[in-house]
């Protein structure tokens, strides 16, 4: 090494140092090992598990939660939380669906509405998501109320708004273009899977290669220090929650297109699954720690569990118990990773 001040010293590691090194590798990549182990286990237990179709199926099933988890990961890194994702999803789904109904359908929400280009429901949907997120962010950043409370309020309000807007009924019979978002395929790959992959890559770039990303980690790491370093903390917090809202809106488009209907009851408890995925993936609720790749694996672990336990004919009740245990176990594991004592 060129520089003595930054060198680690000798090239030969003693056994002590090797032990320490191995320990640190296991704790760093532990969640990936868990994932591989789980996949291996399922493949042995059931021959249909490790097929291309089933794998695509797993990913498609986790896209909604996965998309939300991407947004919530970034929020949690700033030491925030978003409980409103599932409700925002419902609200966006009914509004977007109402703008994408087949013109020949008798029970349309807006009978006089002409057939709109597909971008309209998409753009309006994303805008609603951004608005909800922006309101969350505004309250968190400007009034200083805890994110838990701000987004709890939004969770209730958005669900209510979805019910009011749709009169509590599903908004059905959507155009084929719209349905493509949830059901289409490109080169044999389901469109939601492609969308999820693209968003994951974008979020990865955002966190690791942009100023925004550096600021997100800095705010979560030490908000006061970030402020003194010249970061406009409030602005970035609002942006983070807007991003969260947009991800929920994307999830809403995918999900409503998949079932070809927007529903005010959609996405119930999705926020918790998304938070679980992020947490399993190693995002720390004390802020400053977390990666997109971890969250993607976290979401996939949830997907593999759902799918594998289905294949193995485990009852839905037992699935809940197993999932709950695994989530807590993952966090315990993670806390040990971050423990100061070594």
């Amino acid at each position: 090494m060129s520089n003595p001040a930054l060198s680690t010293g000798g090239q030969h590691l003693s056994t002590d140092e090797k032990k320490v090194l191995i320990k640190s590798i296991i704790s760093k990549y532990g969640i990936y090992f868990v994932f591989l182990g789980l996949v291996l286990f399922m493949s042995i237990m059931h021959p249909a598990f490790l097929t291309v179709n089933n794998i695509l199926n797993i990913i498609r099933q986790v896209t909604s939660i996965g998309l939300i988890a991407l947004g919530v990961t970034i929020i949690i890194i700033t030491r925030g939380i978003d409980l409103s994702s599932g409700s925002v999803l419902a609200l966006v789904s009914v509004i977007a669906a109402s703008l994408a109904q087949n013109p020949d359908w008798g029970a349309r929400m807006y009978p006089a509405l002409p057939m709109l280009p597909i971008v309209v429901p998409i753009v309006v949907g994303l805008a609603i998501g951004a608005l909800c997120g922006g309101i969350n962010g505004f309250f968190v950043a400007k009034t200083g109320i805890p994110p838990f409370i701000a987004t709890l309020g939004m969770m209730i309000v958005a669900r209510g708004a979805a019910m009011i807007y749709s009169d509590g009924r599903p908004v059905s019979s959507l155009t084929p273009e719209y349905n493509f978002i949830g059901q289409g395929e490109i080169l044999g790959i389901p469109f939601p899977v492609i969308l999820f992959a693209i968003m994951a890559v974008l979020c990865y770039i955002l966190l690791n290669h942009t100023r925004f990303g550096k600021y997100v980690y800095a705010i979560g790491g030490n908000e006061q220090a970030a402020h003194v370093s010249g970061i406009n903390v409030g602005k970035y917090k609002i942006l983070v929650y807007i991003l969260g809202g947009v991800m929920s809106a994307l999830a809403a488009l995918v999900l409503s297109a998949r079932i070809s209907s927007g529903q005010p009851g959609l996405g119930n408890m999705f926020e918790l699954d998304a938070i679980a995925a992020a947490t399993i993936g190693g995002v720390s609720h004390s802020g400053g720690i977390g990666t997109i790749q971890g969250t993607v694996v976290g979401a996939l672990i949830i997907g593999v569990l759902n799918n594998g336990l289905d294949l193995l004919n485990v009852s839905a009740y037992w699935q809940m118990v197993i999932k709950g245990v695994i989530i807590v176990a993952a966090v315990v594991f993670d806390m040990r990773k971050n423990a100061r004592k070594s």
């Binding site: 980690y217 800095a218 006061q224 802020g287």
Partner: peptide, 18 residues
């Protein structure tokens, strides 16, 4: 501690943030 460091972030991230 209070207004300088983000303890869990790397040396690099702490160094470059301003």
């Amino acid at each position: 501690r209070q207004t300088g460091l983000s303890l869990m972030l790397s040396v690099e991230d702490n160094g470059c943030i301003a």
